[in-house]
C-alpha cells in the first residue's frame, strides 16, 4: 500500500544513500529515463551494490527497468537476484509488454530460486490506456501508475496547469484499478517549486479516486502523504463503524447515526483503519 512513491535516479550516490530517509512510502529506483544511454551499466552496477550492501534501505523498493524493446531490460531484471526489490515498474505498459514481461519473469523465477514479485504498470502511451482493461487483470499486477508526460507526447498535445487533458486517462486508470483491486497512482506533478499547485491538483486527483501519487522531488512528499492519507474524520468514522460492527458481528446491516451500514461499507471502514495503522496515523 502506498500514498507516495519517490523517483530516485539510479546513478546518483547522494540520493541513493539517503533514499531511506525521505518520507516516501516507496522509493522508485530509476534505471530508465533518468539515466543516459552511456551510463546504463554504471547505474545498474551502483544499484546492485547499493541493494546488496547498504546497511540502510527504504521500506519498499520499486525498480523502474528499461522498456522491453531495449538491450538493457533483461540485465536490469537480473537485479531481482538481490531479493531486495519489492516491485517492478514496467514502462510503456500495454498488453503485449505485460505478457512478455510475465513470460520472461516465469522463466527467470523457475531457473533461479527467487521470491515472487509484484508489478506496477506505467501507462504512458495511448495504446496503454486503450488496452488497460485487458492487462489490468494480470495476476502479478498490483498497481497502475499514470505517466502523463509521455502520454501527452503520444497524443501530440501540451500539458496544462489545469490537467484537463489527462482527465480521461486518469479516469481510465482509476476505473481499471477499482475493478481489479489495484492501487491507482497518479502522474507526478512536474513543477517542483509549485507547492500550492501540487496540493490543489493532488486534492482533485484524490477526489477522482486516485489512491497515491508518484513524486519527483523529496520536498513533494509531505503534501502528497497528507492528501492521500485518510483524514482524521475518515478514521474516526471508520472506527465507529468498526466498533458498531464488532458489537453485533452477526447482523448483516445496521444503522449508525441514521445511516445504513452494510458489508461494503464495513469493508471500506476496515480498509481505512488498515491504512491509518500502516501509515502511523492513529
Amino acid at each position: 500500500m502506498f500514498r507516495s512513491l519517490l523517483f530516485i535516479p539510479g546513478n546518483n550516490p547522494s540520493m541513493l544513500q539517503n533514499a531511506d530517509v525521505f518520507l516516501a512510502d516507496a522509493v522508485i529506483i530509476d534505471l530508465e529515463d533518468a539515466i543516459s544511454i552511456k551510463e546504463k551499466d554504471n547505474a545498474r552496477n551502483l544499484v546492485h551494490n547499493y541493494l546488496t550492501t547498504s546497511s540502510v534501505l527504504p521500506k519498499q523498493i520499486v525498480l523502474r527497468i528499461n522498456s522491453i524493446d531495449t538491450v538493457w531490460y533483461k540485465k536490469d531484471l537480473d537485479l531481482l537476484k538481490t531479493n531486495k526489490i519489492n516491485y517492478l515498474l514496467i514502462p510503456k505498459a500495454d498488453s503485449k509488454t505485460i505478457i512478455e514481461v510475465n513470460e520472461y519473469l516465469d522463466t527467470l523465477f523457475s531457473n533461479n530460486n527467487l521470491d515472487e514479485i509484484k508489478l506496477i504498470a506505467l501507462v504512458e502511451t495511448a495504446r496503454g490506456i486503450t488496452e488497460i482493461d485487458k492487462f489490468a487483470e494480470n495476476k502479478r499486477l498490483c498497481a497502475i501508475l499514470l505517466g502523463a508526460e509521455d502520454l501527452t507526447n503520444d497524443l501530440e498535445i501540451k500539458r496544462s496547469e489545469t490537467n484537463q487533458e489527462i482527465f480521461y486517462a486518469r479516469s481510465k486508470v482509476i476505473f481499471a484499478c477499482a475493478t481489479n483491486k489495484l492501487i491507482s497512482i497518479d502522474t507526478p506533478f512536474t513543477n517542483i517549486n509549485d507547492i500550492v499547485g501540487l496540493e490543489k491538483d493532488s486534492a482533485f486527483s484524490k477526489s477522482l479516486g486516485m489512491k497515491a501519487r508518484a513524486c519527483i522531488h523529496p520536498n513533494q512528499l509531505e503534501i502528497v502523504n497528507r492528501i492521500y492519507s485518510p483524514s482524521n474524520e475518515d478514521i474516526n468514522w471508520a472506527l465507529e463503524v468498526f466498533k458498531a460492527h464488532q458489537a453485533n458481528p452477526n447482523v448483516g446491516a445496521f444503522q449508525l447515526k441514521g445511516k445504513m451500514i452494510d458489508k461494503p461499507i464495513i469493508e471500506r471502514a476496515k480498509k481505512i483503519i488498515e491504512k491509518a495503522k500502516l501509515f502511523n496515523l492513529m
Partner: peptide, 11 residues
C-alpha cells in the same frame, strides 16, 4: 534551504 535532508531536519 531546498535540500530535502535539511528541510526534514528543520521540520
Amino acid at each position: 534551504t531546498k535540500d530535502p535532508i535539511g528541510l526534514k531536519i528543520a521540520k
